[in-house]
């Protein structure tokens, strides 16, 4: 059953609460990029991905590859909502022996298809998954989430070129265009000019949306799902730290945890009652 936009918004809100809680408990991690990506990921998991939480290794599943692996709290939150892991597991984020490693890891966490943590790697890995699907005659689709700072890595463009060369219509990218990277705004660190034009020039089908508007997200994910004759990218314009006022558009919260006071503010803003 497909969720409505309102239901998806509520799902994403619950995930936001868990994201902030995870980073707060660990007093480390990456809230900004988790909050920017979560509306997209929540809608993707709820309405699009062909996966089975009870059998995460089901061979014919769609793949979701979080290439910006530091934004793991976002992925863990939705994996818990979907039932791949328990809510209790979220408490293991960054804890010794925990399934929720600092960066998403396929060896540790059910439902994770790619061990991330080093930027610029997920699209290539996704290419391998896409070729596998083709060789096996499978309908599976491969979704790769990239960060915007991440596409400064040259190897992303090796993969972009190769995916078109091999006409991988089952390979889909969601670009979290939150305009901020580790040290500062992308514009300061490395200007990227016309990102849609770059992907178009590599032969990809391109669509841009507001990555926090659920109706646009659904439209965008429909575009990805239904573009099967060409590799496709959805460029989602997002706000880093979306949903928590002091984190929004603030490079300081790329990789920093809220203190007690900030945590309380975040919970209030996200509509969560904390004892």
């Amino acid at each position: 059953m497909s969720m409505s936009s309102t239901e998806l918004q509520e799902l994403a809100r619950k995930c936001r609460v868990e994201i902030v809680k995870m980073v707060y408990r660990a007093q480390a991690g990456h809230p900004g990029g988790s909050l920017s990506e979560i509306d997209l990921i929540a809608a993707l998991y709820a309405n699009y991905l062909r996966v089975k939480p009870g059998s995460p290794d089901w061979e014919d599943r769609d793949r979701f590859i979080l290439s910006k692996g530091h934004a793991s709290p976002g992925m863990y939150a939705i994996l818990a909502e979907m039932g791949f892991i328990s809510k209790q597991d979220l408490e293991s984020y960054r804890v010794l022996g925990g399934v929720c490693q600092g960066h998403v890891d396929m060896k540790w966490c059910p439902g994770v298809d790619f061990s991330a943590g080093s930027l610029g790697m997920g699209l290539s890995f996704g290419m391998g998954c896409a070729i596998s699907g083709r060789l096996k005659g499978s309908e599976r689709q491969i979704f790769v989430m990239l960060g915007d700072g991440e596409i400064q890595e040259g190897s992303v463009w090796e993969a972009a070129m190769a995916a078109k060369h091999h006409e991988l219509g089952n390979l889909k990218v969601i670009l979290d265009r939150n305009r901020i990277q580790n040290d500062d705004f992308c514009e300061t660190q490395m200007r990227m000019f016309d990102i849609p034009a770059k992907w178009k020039a590599f032969g990809w089908s391109v669509k841009e949306i507001n990555g926090h508007d659920m109706d646009e997200i659904v439209e965008g994910l429909d575009f990805l799902k239904n573009t099967n004759d060409n590799p496709a990218i959805l460029i989602a314009h997002t706000v880093k730290g979306k949903g928590v006022s002091y984190m929004e558009d603030n490079p300081s919260f790329h990789g920093a945890a809220p203190n007690d006071e900030q945590f309380a503010v975040a919970m209030a803003e996200l509509g969560e009652v904390v004892n």
Partner: peptide, 22 residues
Amino acid sequence: ISCGIGEQNMLLTAAGLASSGF
């Protein structure tokens, strides 16, 4: 699979294939 002159992409494309049983 031709990966062009792109060794980084080649290694990870191979990894993706291995993760899918090849």
